[in-house]
Design a protein around this nucleic acid. Structure first.
Lengths: 212, 212
DNA sequence: AGACCATTAGGCCAAACGACCCATCGAAAT
DNA sequence: ATTTCGATGGGTCGTTTGGCCTAATGGTCT
């Protein structure tokens, strides 16, 4: 789970991005602030691996804030209109990446994973950067979730959309109720939960529920 | 449920806003496009009560698109830096509201509700507008959810974060297990579900789970 | 004052659930 | 070839759950 802090004075953008990142299974937004100083303060109270910083913010832009972050938190700069000058300034301040707000969410998410993994995107050629991002498109699921078998994932997907009764699950999967209970038992163990309600919640959190 | 279409060439913003609005219980984003013409086309295939249009988009700005919408769909304009000139142009084109991207999500959500309800925010004085928005801050919950009592909502909130066992719920709420089961029974009836797993899923969908 | 409702709590009971055993089959890995 | 593992199924047992009914209390609204 990558902890992310967002600094952007456009609340609509910040809150929306926060929601979107929280919907991913491997990122969690731990704070949203609207200025550079507020970001520094927030990071003192609540550590985060990566912060997303708008380059254009009132009261001193984000660049000097990034310079002050040091090693604690990697910074990815987002900008309304990315330019070469901005990239240069961001690089000097120590930012690990710079993206226009016009990129898809998947790209930013990939960048967050890459940067959290120690990569520095800002020094790469566009081609090398794109290859690296491509490799990080897939969310890194929790260890527990990764160990789930295909059949167990099927059961979780049904659970997460409200198919909770044993007999219904058995009907949907064309297996006996006993087999459903066996699968559920091993799901409970792998996810460290104790009943199907908690399993359903975990499934939703892991992004296993396909949106209706 | 208010169907919303988003037109904005900044994908990060559009996707984030989409997620955020979908997380609200009474709005549903039915389409995201990145240009004015694409918006007109999308609305032909998929009706929506309200559309959110960025005023600054490449390939002809959003203003003329709004003029073409007619009565079908109410438009709310969002802008990076709201100005009086932009407001005037948006009004002439028939937009029902204009907001800076710096406003909180709750404000935009309130505006969507007001506009969907037939209000025209753009002709109002700032004071009158704020009063109207204030009145629309609360999401209009589903009929079933609206009838939930405070105690029932408390139970649902706990359910949605994984407190699913009767004895745990009783401990957390300082009531007997019997009372917990009574509350659950009436929750099941009001939400038209049959067990706590489905109730938890519904609670999450209704936005009753406070994010941790 | 009376009506209504949220909150609390109890009893009863059938059904469902979860925990703990075990067994078979086939595919994949070694 | 042997092992491993996923998927399938079975049995048993104690616990939990959900349905249904009743009832006391305290607040609010009319």
């Amino acid at each position: 789970m990558i902890r992310v802090m967002i600094a952007d004075d456009h609340q609509l953008f910040a809150e929306g991005l926060s929601q979107a990142l929280n919907a991913l299974p491997d990122t969690r937004v731990v704070g949203v602030v609207d200025s550079g100083p507020a970001l520094e303060q927030a990071l003192n109270n609540q550590p985060a691996e990566v912060c997303i910083v708008d380059i254009e913010m009132p009261g001193g832009d984000g660049i000097e804030t990034i310079s002050n972050l040091g090693m604690r938190t990697k910074a990815i700069v987002v900008s309304m209109h990315a330019s070469d000058q901005q990239t240069e300034r961001a690089r000097e301040a120590g930012a690990k990446g710079l993206f226009s707000k016009g990129v898809p969410l998947t790209t930013l998410a990939a960048a967050i994973r890459a940067v959290a993994g120690g990569e520095n995107l800002i020094d790469l050629s566009p081609e090398a950067r794109d290859i690296l991002l491509e490799a990080n498109l897939q969310a890194q699921l929790d260890p527990g979730a990764a160990a789930l078998t295909p059949r167990e994932i099927e059961i979780l997907q049904l659970l997460a959309v409200g198919v909770s009764a044993t007999d219904e699950l058995a009907d949907r999967l064309y297996i006996s109720q006993k087999t459903v209970k066996n699968h559920l038992a091993s799901v409970f163990q792998k996810l460290a939960v104790s009943d199907r309600t908690q399993a359903a919640i975990e499934a939703i959190r892991l992004g296993l529920a396909r949106p209706q």
